[in-house]
Design a protein around this nucleic acid. Sequence first.
DNA 1: CCTTAAGTGGACATCGTGTCCGGTTCGCCA
DNA 2: TGGCGAACCGGACACGATGTCCACTTAAGG
Lengths: 185, 185
Amino acid sequence: MERADAARNRARILEAAARLFAEKGAPNVTMDDIARAAGVGRGTLYRRYPDRAAIAVALLDEHERALQERLLRGEPPLGPGAPPAERLAAFYAAMVGLLEDHAHLVLGAETGRSRFEVGAYGFWRAHVRALLAAASVPEPEALVDVLLAPLDPEVYLFQRRDRGLGPEQITAALTRLAAGVLGAG
Amino acid sequence: MERADAARNRARILEAAARLFAEKGAPNVTMDDIARAAGVGRGTLYRRYPDRAAIAVALLDEHERALQERLLRGEPPLGPGAPPAERLAAFYAAMVGLLEDHAHLVLGAETGRSRFEVGAYGFWRAHVRALLAAASVPEPEALVDVLLAPLDPEVYLFQRRDRGLGPEQITAALTRLAAGVLGAG
DNA sequence: CCTTAAGTGGACATCGTGTCCGGTTCGCCA
DNA sequence: TGGCGAACCGGACACGATGTCCACTTAAGG
């Protein structure tokens, strides 16, 4: 069980981190910044969250859970019931929505390959893998990560900011990708 | 023009960096390590290469140039002459070869979004974009980066090391991707 | 109340980065 | 060959971020 002061501090840390990430961009926020903004000491911060990635994961957690729930038990085409190609396209569209809202938050918080080590990636991977299997794609193993690669927050932000693309254009490209790989079976 | 001692030092820096990157992995090599291994001072190192990424770029340069040359003027299907879908598949296969040899070198050397800022990415981008245009794909702009995303060294190393996939399996998946997107035009 | 264990916070040691400047070496030209 | 200016060299330095550690505080139950 969690002590009252601990719970209060955790809430303050998360709130402060969310604000700072949005303000200055995740890579430019130091652990010290967060601790100071939250009004807690460094030791307290490190006790809970060993690094920025852990904080980002905690912040994203609820949003990702919501999407995961819809994938498992929601309405088609996101949930079960629709053809694999349509479900993949719907998944892409939903992920673009998630990225549009929170990519800035994730970016930089994931140092190096931490993206793959996070539990959420495993979930997306299993989902897409199941769709490939349902479409009878041979050797889906390698294709899974290939199809997930465009959802890298860095890629998304590059397209949005540097290339000047809109979410709908990116979604369209991903839809085409889904149709090309699964539609033409 | 470049002075003789400067040229000698640059060669030693590149040689030492290549060795250290291969030995300990690029992210674990500090600028100080490289300077010491090369037998030069930190100032000398920073004069030429402002960060690790610059060294990695210099090391990759010749290999990338060779591939770029083959794309522009080599034999089909890599060079001009073959249908876009086949050229894209050939490009993927060649990039897998490049990654297989040098991904460890690039990884971690590219801090954050530096991958997109490097000149080579612009070249790959222009190449794939031209292939999409040749295949009369509507709105190729967003699709380009989507198709390039699986070539992220981090993705590749994740597939190779963590997922235990072989280069031929990854190439097969990318070939399927090329066929799906361009083949079914 | 009083005890106990978890929680807290800031000081500390360490490491990597990037800069700066006095001394050195090179390459050109007389 | 000898001298000169400029480019180059290298280590010392200051700074910033990280992660740890420990003495103190506070919450919760008996």
